[in-house]
C-alpha cells in the first residue's frame, strides 16, 4: 500500500459521551486493513488519550489520520488554552483536570505519558491562548 488513506474527524468539546468514538472508528479501519494487533492497540491508546485531552482540556478539535503500510500519522489540533509548561504536563500524575472530570475516572495525569509510551514519534506544538497541535507517528512495520 504505497498510497495513503486519509481520514478526517471533528471532535466536539462538550460531549463526554462520544469521547473515544473516533479512536474506535480508526481502530476498526486498521483492523480491517489487516494491521498487526500490537500496532492497532498502540494507535488506539495514543489516539484515545489525545481525543480525551481535546474534550476535557480544550473544548474539542480536529483529528487527521494518514494511514500507509509503513506508518500511521495522527495529527490532533485544538483551539484550547494551550499548555504553559509542556515538560511538566508530560510528567506522570500531573493534571489540571477538574474534580467533576476526575470523578469520571479521567485526570490521572497519565494521558501524555501514555501517548509517549505507545507512539514512535510524538511532537507537541502548543501556544498559550491559541491552542495545541499534537502529532503522533506509529510505525507499522516490524
Amino acid at each position: 500500500m504505497a498510497e495513503v488513506m486519509k481520514l478526517h474527524y471533528v471532535v466536539s468539546g462538550d460531549d463526554f459521551t462520544r469521547a473515544g468514538e473516533t479512536s474506535s472508528k480508526v481502530k476498526k479501519t486498521l483492523n480491517q486493513l489487516g494491521f498487526r494487533p500490537e500496532v492497532v492497540r498502540k494507535v488506539a491508546i495514543a489516539m484515545y488519550e489525545g481525543e480525551i485531552n481535546m474534550v476535557i482540556h480544550a473544548d474539542g478539535g480536529t483529528i487527521d489520520v494518514d494511514i500507509s503500510s509503513d506508518e500511521i500519522v495522527i495529527v490532533m489540533q485544538d483551539k484550547g488554552p494551550g499548555i504553559p509548561d509542556v515538560e511538566k504536563a508530560m510528567q506522570e500524575g500531573f493534571s489540571t483536570a477538574s474534580n467533576n472530570v476526575r470523578e469520571l475516572g479521567f485526570g490521572a495525569g497519565m494521558g501524555l505519558p501514555n501517548i509517549k509510551k505507545y507512539s514512535d514519534v510524538m511532537e507537541i506544538d502548543t501556544q498559550v491562548g491559541k491552542g495545541t497541535k499534537l502529532r503522533i507517528v506509529i510505525y507499522a512495520k516490524e
Binding site: 463526554f16 469521547a19 473515544g20 468514538e21 479512536s23 474506535s24 481502530k27 492497540r41 488506539a44 491508546i45 484515545y48 469520571l104 475516572g105 479521567f106
Partner: peptide, 9 residues
C-alpha cells in the same frame, strides 16, 4: 467511558 476503554484495549 469504561466501554471505550475496554473496547479500545
Amino acid at each position: 467511558n469504561i466501554v471505550a476503554v475496554s473496547s479500545l484495549a
